[in-house]
Design a binder for these strands. Sequence first.
DNA 1: GAAGATTGCGAGTGGTTGCTATCTATGTTA
DNA 2: TAACATAGATAGCAACCACTCGCAATCTTC
Lengths: 202, 202
Amino acid sequence: MMIQRRTQAERREGTIRKLLDAATETLIDVGYAEASVQRICARAEVSQGALFRHFPTREALMVAVGEDIGAQLLERYRERFEDIPRGDDDLVHAMRLVRDTCRSRLNQAWYELSMAARTHEHLRNGLRPVGRRYHDDIATLARKLLPDAAARLGPTFDVLVGTIIAVFDGEVVHRFVLESPEEDDARLEILTGAVRMLARPT
Amino acid sequence: MMIQRRTQAERREGTIRKLLDAATETLIDVGYAEASVQRICARAEVSQGALFRHFPTREALMVAVGEDIGAQLLERYRERFEDIPRGDDDLVHAMRLVRDTCRSRLNQAWYELSMAARTHEHLRNGLRPVGRRYHDDIATLARKLLPDAAARLGPTFDVLVGTIIAVFDGEVVHRFVLESPEEDDARLEILTGAVRMLARPT
DNA sequence: GAAGATTGCGAGTGGTTGCTATCTATGTTA
DNA sequence: TAACATAGATAGCAACCACTCGCAATCTTC
């Protein structure tokens, strides 16, 4: 039964895409350890043989998932950064954007990979360039959105951006065990105020 | 062959302690998923039957490990907080203490449990009270160490403490994939400056 | 010291794991 | 269209998983 005529490249890309998406969703649902090739393949509606045709090991698939997630998250940032209206409160919007992205579904998969990378050397090595690119690209984007503050702060600006992301990533990790929305909101305000103070000319 | 005369309670406590310590070390070494009962028991030099005599499931053991780690981390904070010399730079010392503790071996095990809690409901429920107590006790300790700032800031002080911890926890998670010591040090300085600014009277 | 309770042991349970080998189906090239 | 390359499916592998069970060792109580 022939459904449709496709080139080899199309077939290949199609199943790889299905596998990456299924792996990402499985990662979000059950975490790295329980994201078995069986589960991923079942979700992708593809056989295990197909998976191992395109990825030599499960870990290699996970590295590819990491690259894919990194690209998607960056794209997400790019789109929403552009949508932020320039003005006095663009910093507030930017802070909210970072927090929302850290809490996004997609980012949960990234946490799973990061954590697994701690104890899995291959994964760590594979994820490192992705992490670096992600880090740098976000700094570039932020400079584009807040050029005045960037110019004023110089290299400190990048550190500040990294710190804001670190705050919200840390917050999310805490939330895995214990949620405290009021404190989170208070933190967002304090943090915004502190950044505004640092970013303003002395 | 009788080695030593011990009460039942001593025997019991002894093997439980061995299991908790072995489980903690195994968590640090291979992560939550690979910390199997086999591995833990081998490390504790105790049979699997002994483990399941004291803990109904592996997850129950992990909750107990979480409680134990929480107590140890708090004790660590308590000791080192007391050692900080009061003076102009006590804030610097406190910040360094928080960062060091976040990077400590013991805290790696806590990250493993926190992350696993995201997808394991029982673990999350068991860890929640531990997390809450840990959170509150640290805030209390910090108020004791920095009474002036605490008085000046009111409830904001607790949020600030939580934020500092969040920064370093987030930093550690980033470091699992990508290390950047220079940025980390720059962040520590900026953060200390910002906190000092916030904590000083306006 | 006998009886009873608690604790520790280790073989065995069914189930899942990542991965391979073999085969068929589909697309490409001559 | 014949020969070949690529892609996908299926069954099966040894290793490991959390957990159970009957028994032996140890401690407590009388």
